[in-house]
Design a protein around this nucleic acid. Sequence first.
DNA 1: AGAAACATTGTACCGATGGACATGGCAACA
DNA 2: TGTTGCCATGTCCATCGGTACAATGTTTCT
Lengths: 206, 206
Amino acid sequence: MAHFFVSQGRDDLPRWREAFSDARMCSAQQARAQAAYGDHVWVMSNIEGWTTLATTLSSRGAILVVLSYTPTSQEAFQALNAGARGYAHALSPAMLLQQIVVVTENQGIWLWPELLTQVVGSTFKALGGENALREDVLALLTGREKAVALAVASGKSNKEVARILDITDRTVKAHLGAVFRKLKVRDRMQLVLMLSQSESSLMDAD
Amino acid sequence: MAHFFVSQGRDDLPRWREAFSDARMCSAQQARAQAAYGDHVWVMSNIEGWTTLATTLSSRGAILVVLSYTPTSQEAFQALNAGARGYAHALSPAMLLQQIVVVTENQGIWLWPELLTQVVGSTFKALGGENALREDVLALLTGREKAVALAVASGKSNKEVARILDITDRTVKAHLGAVFRKLKVRDRMQLVLMLSQSESSLMDAD
DNA sequence: AGAAACATTGTACCGATGGACATGGCAACA
DNA sequence: TGTTGCCATGTCCATCGGTACAATGTTTCT
């Protein structure tokens, strides 16, 4: 099975050659044209439109691994969504690249270890396994705190929440403080990221 | 490396022996006592308290694979959260078990194939529509605005974004103001609600 | 050459936010 | 009858966030 490396610069080719003697470097167009079922395609996440390329190639049956100079759970999530079977650091040594191939060839998924737990979490969030987790965290809150948390998570300001729940904006802050402490988040942004994608209503409101 | 099978009945032992001649069947207690770093531990999801067992063993460095007679995405989620590296059907043939070992030994994750297609397939379908819309709105932004918007949408503060992009926090505000105007949102909360459905990011953490 | 878009930074203002500390009412429970 | 937990509210204060107005430099296109 062939190995295609889709990248911009050519700095990395030597290391890839070291890992796979038959490694070929190519553009996105070439990969699109030549990569076939069972081939390994390594795509750098800093090239333009890597997600669409990943999607088309993986749906064709190519084994796709995304490489990133700055791995993040978000990007890993995106890579998996695009059908990638692996996500690793762009500077991974040759031995690691070979190991990744062993895994992916055997129907496995390979993730940058530092991100593993996070990605597993957020990926399954998208499937609905999230609900259990979300209900769990909400279970830590009292009724009023839950109401405030959900309202805030839908984009409302403290004042708006106060008006909706018919309490003072100061009280909203008090509940919110408790929510932050219990859920271990530092501000409303983190809260929204933790509770979003559910029935949290509309963000236009008034 | 040893193979421990934690199960109730002994019906499955023959198949496991076929896959791994050194397979040992044992109770949860025995596994807890004997399994060491690098050992494979196969846990049936129908035994009492399998999640806690999985957590302790995997944190000890054992390679954990959860087997289930009725695989579901929820249970897979639980298993992976408990530190399992694999999740498969309890009746998987010997060859498949060996394949799983190849994957997990190489730091990979192995998921029940039917589940995997869900991850790659249905998630994509679910996010496909939103994704197109999201790409559309992002297309309205300049490169720098996009970077700022995505960083902010991932929960970063202005100061953090400034540090990451190596610009002043004032400049971040400037770009962010443009983003708000172009996307017609009134603050970062609305932005996160607009972009958090399908993540994407090029930025790194601290 | 000049316009237009982009990126960067500045000052200044003001509202929103979050934490610390304190008070009071109300219910359940030992 | 205390104690405990939840709800509501208050003041004070440091910081963050968003906007308005202004300026400088770089591309890019006309």
